[in-house]
């Protein structure tokens, strides 16, 4: 159990170091996913399985995919098929693959000793039911504030991310059209 924690912790630190030293954004994001997965395994060994699932779903799933979408929208480089082929060199994905393989081995090991949460860390195991009861009991105000925050985030992202269209008055529009026509001639 302790060994699992230490392995996952070193994988997390290693992957994070790789994140902050990459030059290519996509490679950094690949290592970032591994780092989040490693932290999820740490949560599992800490007796917080629900948070481990949330970490994988929200951080490694939603947030990283959002960043990838924005990088794709920016279309930073004129990467074509050759570039894609160059990116898929084994030396690029072998690092994240090895690190996540270590995490997979840990997961299999933890599943093999299936009664892990009940016996191993019985003192510190907090299941999802206790979290839910506390979340909608004493912390219900925080839940409502989170809802307001998410609403503000949606509205803010929509407002900021909108492309401003150039608005031209209809008189000026005619002038622009004339100018274009004379430029074409």
């Amino acid at each position: 159990m302790e060994l699992t924690f230490y392995i996952a912790a070193s994988v997390a630190v290693l992957a994070t170091i790789m994140v902050i030293t990459r030059y290519n954004m996509i490679h950094a994001l690949l290592y970032l996913v591994v780092s989040f997965l490693a932290v999820a395994v740490v949560f599992l060994t800490m007796g917080a399985p629900f948070m481990a699932a949330l970490e994988v779903i929200v951080y490694a799933g939603a947030i990283v995919v959002l960043i990838i979408f924005v990088i794709m929208m920016l279309s930073l480089t004129r990467e074509d098929v050759e570039q894609e082929k160059a990116w898929l060199q084994p030396k690029l994905w072998i690092g994240p693959a090895l690190l996540s393989f270590v995490l997979l081995a840990e997961l299999v090991y933890l599943l093999a000793i299936a009664d892990m949460p009940a016996t191993a860390s019985a003192a510190s195991y907090v299941d999802a039911q206790a979290v839910g009861l506390a979340l909608y009991g004493p912390y219900v105000l925080g839940v409502q504030l989170s809802g307001i925050l998410l609403m503000a985030g949606i509205v803010g992202a929509y407002h900021l991310g909108r492309q401003k269209k150039k608005v031209i008055h209809r008189f000026l529009q005619q002038e622009e059209a004339q100018k274009e026509r004379s430029a074409a001639l």
């Binding site: 917080a48 629900f50 948070m51 949330l54 979290v131 503000a152 985030g153 900021l160």
Partner: peptide, 21 residues
């Protein structure tokens, strides 16, 4: 502690969407 983590998660999601915009 886990509830605080849920709140941090919510905040991170809102922050990353506004930041990317």
């Amino acid at each position: 502690g886990q509830i605080m983590f849920i709140f941090i998660l919510t905040m991170a999601a809102a922050e990353v969407s506004v930041g990317l915009a």
